[in-house]
Design a protein around this nucleic acid. Structure first.
Lengths: 340, 340
DNA sequence: CTGAAAGCGCTTACAG
DNA sequence: CTGAAAGCGCTTACAG
């Protein structure tokens, strides 16, 4: 980088001088605004590259009348959030929507993470699986528009996008029912974003399939550990369900790890269905039947909603929420119900 | 938030007016600079809270003579990076070092991620497991100081901190040797940051334990899939090693998943040692023997180095790198070498 | 402590 | 296209 010879980082003035144009024009080129000829534009970009120029986001967002960056709040320990992040990066590459990230972790609560995003003047916030209730999310965000991913929201000032759990659960239960299963256990996670939605969806699907009276539900965390515990409790009990649907793939994996070690054959003795269809489910030899969540669409729609809120060309979309279809990926962990 | 009644977000001026002090004084309070009495300070903070004031990082970092924020470049698909993120958040909470995150993913290469950090005027960059070679990292960072986590770096202008792989490998190999193992396979990952270091460490540890001639090495990716493939290749071969050390816990897990399904008992028939001692290794029923990486110390030292580079009270520390000790956590996947 | 002021690097509107 | 200018919300040095 020849820029290093200057002793400070190059500014638009430096690029302008190097390209022999005005500073205003450099700004026009970098904003992609009309007013620069193709040839001039190339000269400016060449000079910028030569100097190692990087446009200053702090200055840009401070000065711009409308902040276009999208703040994303995610959880460090949620693999599915990282898949969503990938998708959001893919859908903002080359746009004027830089992503600003802020993580929720043991040492950092949601309010702190959101405050961190506001400090960078984000034009909109995308919250992945937020735990807070609607009113506190609204209070935290203040005047900044909010898009929630992974659960429904009633308040109409918040946009949301999530997988169609009703559809997904129905696909899972119908699949099991077709295989002859009636005694189905659902490992719920009421604490998670979308946890209550998914539980309701399970009850609805059981009713629709006429097995409401033979299904059971257990509640807990959304980790492998929780699945493992559930397996132990199952094995200690008198009547085994013939199939288990887990809140997510991680819970299903933990469950299967214990079952297999204890000599319970999957799916011969018990069928297992995961949720997410993450890498966990897809890999050999796990090959788990799982409800596929379309992370790519979730991410794309979240970005689109945020972008619409930032540039309100039209009144807010109605409805304010989107359900993304799921589909069931049948692999090797589901089979005919055993007769017992 | 009573601030929402203003129609725009509150600034320091608004807080000053509400608290009945000057704007300069509000700045002093928020910077923690000397010049404000305890009582005034409380009045300012109360007014700020009342208004829902969040200090504008864009303006702060634009104006401040020295940018104090730390840019962190991480990979979305690396669980260990998220543990490091947790640690870095914990060690910057309450300091004047806000973290700015930028992810590397399929859709976003390292150069783009680093440029993203520079755009926010970070005072220093912390790169988690960067893949680029030293010269390109230096070129990308320009004048911004760089701290690399997860591998050694020769260039003395870059600080680094990583686990002592030499120690960790020696702990793993010595443990196996004590149990009578000689035929040890190492599943390497030369492409990963620190991969070559760890491979060299394995060879050194084998030599120190007098088993150089009976060990083998296979190379590949750092995923469960890769471990599963390795297990299949092992089972197809004529002579099984009596123990496997994996590049990380994920590879070890994939390996064990196949072994257990094929009726190969761990550790009776084959011992398995992971690396990282992540949640994967710790959970029941996996309970994997693994080389523990001290993520908390790695994160703390990375933050300390970055902070030192931002506020150079003393000349750069010598040496510019730190090796963090590992320790071996013995669980249930290692045992006496089988006689065959 | 106050108050007035300069300036970080941009965006934006404006006269030419 | 240029060039001069204002201003985003802060930090910082300064006179009182």
């Amino acid at each position: 980088m020849s820029g290093s010879s200057m002793g400070r980082r190059p500014t638009m003035r430096d690029v302008a001088r190097a390209a022999g144009v005005s500073q205003s024009l450099v700004s026009i080129v970098f904003r992609g605004a009309p007013g620069a000829g193709a040839q001039t534009r190339d000269r400016v970009l060449a000079a910028a590259r030569e100097l190692g120029y990087v446009r200053d986001e702090s200055a840009r967002s401070l000065r711009a009348s409308q902040s276009t960056s999208i703040g994303v709040c995610f959880q460090t320990r949620q693999p599915f959030h990282h898949v969503l992040l990938d998708g959001m990066y893919a859908h903002t590459a080359g746009t004027n929507h830089p992503l600003v990230l802020s993580a929720v972790s043991d040492a950092r609560d949601e309010a702190t993470a959101i405050r961190g995003l506001l400090a960078y003047r984000c034009g909109a916030l995308v919250l992945l699986g937020p735990r807070g209730d609607e009113q506190s999310l609204l209070a935290m965000a203040g005047d900044t528009p909010v898009v929630v991913v992974g659960r429904r929201v009633d308040d109409r000032s918040i946009d949301w996008v999530t997988s169609d759990d009703g559809l997904g659960m129905d696909q899972a239960v119908t699949h099991l029912r077709t295989l002859g299963h009636r005694r189905v256990l659902y490992l719920s996670c009421s604490r998670a974003a979308g946890g209550p939605d998914r539980l309701q969806a399970f009850h609805d699907a059981a009713a629709a399939n006429g097995i409401s009276r033979s299904v059971t539900v257990a509640d807990g965390e959304m980790t492998e550990q929780r699945g493992a515990r559930a397996a132990e409790r199952l094995l200690a009990g008198s009547i085994l369900p013939t199939a288990v649907i887990a809140f997510n793939d991680r819970v299903a994996l933990g469950l299967m790890e214990v079952l297999i070690r204890r000599g319970v054959a999957v799916p011969k003795d018990i069928s297992v269905v995961g949720f997410d269809d993450s890498e966990i489910a897809q890999r050999d030899p796990v090959l788990m039947t799982s409800v596929h969540q379309d992370a790519e669409s979730l991410a794309r729609i979240a970005v689109e909603r945020a972008s619409q809120r930032i540039h309100p060309s039209s009144p807010p979309t109605d409805p304010h929420g989107t359900l993304v279809p799921t589909h069931l990926v049948v692999r090797s962990t589901t089979g005919e119900a055993p007769r017992r």
